[in-house]
Design a protein around this nucleic acid. Structure first.
Lengths: 197, 197, 197, 197
DNA sequence: GATGAATGAGTATTCATTCAT
DNA sequence: AATGAATGAATACTCATTCAT
């Protein structure tokens, strides 16, 4: 009797959830978890407040899901970088470009919000153990080491270099992420001077 | 008539207001205006919530006062840099060091919060007209131009260079400002590579 | 989409708003705007405090809406009196009865509260320009003049007579409006002696 | 050693207390007990908030003292009326004039506030047992009865007549008591028509 | 699945009262 | 006696979450 079969229902479910998550990402990224009201997410997604609770148990749950997604994507894409057959320096430039890309700004801002706000659910804090700065440094260490050996990357302590480099890039993305930001995303060439001779 | 004379009262008032402002700066910087509860400021300052309202009309008023202070200080100190009798490059290094200094982190975070949060009083938004990125760029322009002519600063569009440089420094301070931050403040030498040949 | 259609929702909204307004009228009239706590209105209406804010932006807004209503009703009903085909004196008696009627007491008390309390929103004060004592006097002037010519109304300055008469009636209603009032509503015959020969 | 002797101190005490009571009367009368803030009384009296508490234990105490004073004065003056050697009707006219006198308005308003507001201390409510409407009616009963017998006062139930008359006069004073009132105090002659043939 | 009315716990702010000086 | 800083309880208002439809 039902006019929609199970598959179709599932598809609606998935689409709606996705739609709400995109809205939530945007709002969380800009306002932080404390500053975000469910009404904002609902308005951004164009649905009712009630529907939000059909798909998420709570504000926290949605936030956690988004942070998890953001971390996984950024970690995986950094990781997958390794296998591309280009020189270390080119890989680093590639990564830099990827990070500075306009689309990723909400993700970086969200991760920043998650990492630094204190009104954040414990479950999110646990994610940081897994996706810590150190994890990223470890991921990039071979790349930078190789570049150093090739004489393309500046000499010096690599952990310090890499974590500073990541901090700077994250900082730029955060500064730039709000609408009508006065701040400016630097050119890739400029950023590359940080790590090259 | 009064059991305490005017001077004594003024001193108490000034000290207390200062004490509350320091607490408010710390809390606002870390939690943003929406995330900050008056109870947090009161607890941080070690006074009652009521006393907060003895000295500030509202949360917004305190926020505005702090942002104004922060902007004035950062602008004035940048300006005063000019008159020190050292080379342009040394001035820029000096400025870089000053910005990256641990103590100023709350101010930078606060300015960032003010500039980018959207739940911010209109009066704060007006401050941005006065202390815009462009104002800072204009302030630093002669310095960088001189450095460029001396062959110490990289060639290229100066507005772009300066605003990128400021964005990066601001970003670093913001990333670093939270307690227990995973992020790392880069060495001054590293940052200087951004602008030097 | 909606599980309740627009009409049903509108009906619920209207009923609920009406229910809250009736409660608010009663409480405001007795306690004044400063003495009225939202919790009193909510309790009187049998709803939660939150729901009050679903229907009214603030205590002031509800107060304003009620005063507006009260003034419009009293003005319109006074005006509509004119067209009834009875003698001037009978009209005045009719009006007197209408004012002294038990049901209207909350409205009179509310208008008094609004007119005389000082902690009243500006918007309410503006209403007084429109519904001033003079406006009522002007409305009743022809009636009393006719009665005077017919020799049924005492001689003398009509503006003075009418405004005194209205003041007295308002005063009586105000004195009587509280629960368990010791004061007594005079008989219509007694009041009529004020204006008749 | 003290520059002021005991008597002088007592005098200062009394004057200050009086000064604060006059201010309190004015403010309580206009704003009611809930609407009155200690800061208002202090400002009106031109003293500090702290000093208020030197002379009164609490807001309630001051309110009670004022209401007691107002009731005693109005009761006593009504009573003392009896002994003046004039005709009953003249006495009533005299009383009417006394009540409608501008100076007494704050007292009437205060009594009204006390009688009708519900946020009033229990001690005040007890005063009403003593100074009830009935007490006043009893006080005036002989006067009106005599006038009735002399054919100067309208016939009919005296309790009803007197309490209505008092209600009307109180009402007028209350309506008129606020600053910038639109209401009008009727002429004595007009009011007298209420009770005379 | 979808809506928006309804709730109540939490937060900003006010104000009676106390207290050190 | 006099002041005004300081406190904390009370109150207006907001917002995450639930629920009837």
């Amino acid at each position: 009797m039902s006019p929609l079969n199970k598959e179709q229902l599932n598809q609606i479910r998935d689409e709606r959830k996705e739609q709400i998550m995109r809205a939530a990402l945007k709002v969380f990224a800009q306002w932080g978890i404390v500053g975000t009201k469910i009404s904002m997410i609902a308005a951004e997604a164009g649905v009712s407040q009630g529907l939000f609770y059909h798909y998420f148990k709570s504000k926290d749950e949605a936030f956690i899901a988004l942070v998890k997604e953001a971390m996984e994507i950024s970690y995986t894409s950094t990781k997958s970088l390794q296998s591309i057959p280009i020189s270390p320096l080119e890989k680093i430039r590639f990564l830099t470009e990827a990070i500075l890309e306009e689309e990723s700004k909400y993700y970086y801002l969200l991760i920043y919000q998650a990492r630094s706000s204190e009104g954040v659910p414990d479950e999110v804090k646990e994610l940081f153990t897994q996706y810590s700065m150190k994890a990223y440094v470890d991921l990039l260490m071979p790349l930078f080491a190789e570049g150093q050996q090739a004489g393309e990357i500046v000499a010096g302590d690599l952990e310090e270099l890499i974590s500073s480099y990541l901090t700077i890039l994250s900082g730029v993305m955060v500064m730039n992420a709000r609408e009508s930001s006065d701040y400016r995303i630097p050119e890739v060439d400029m950023v590359m001077r940080l790590v090259t001779k």
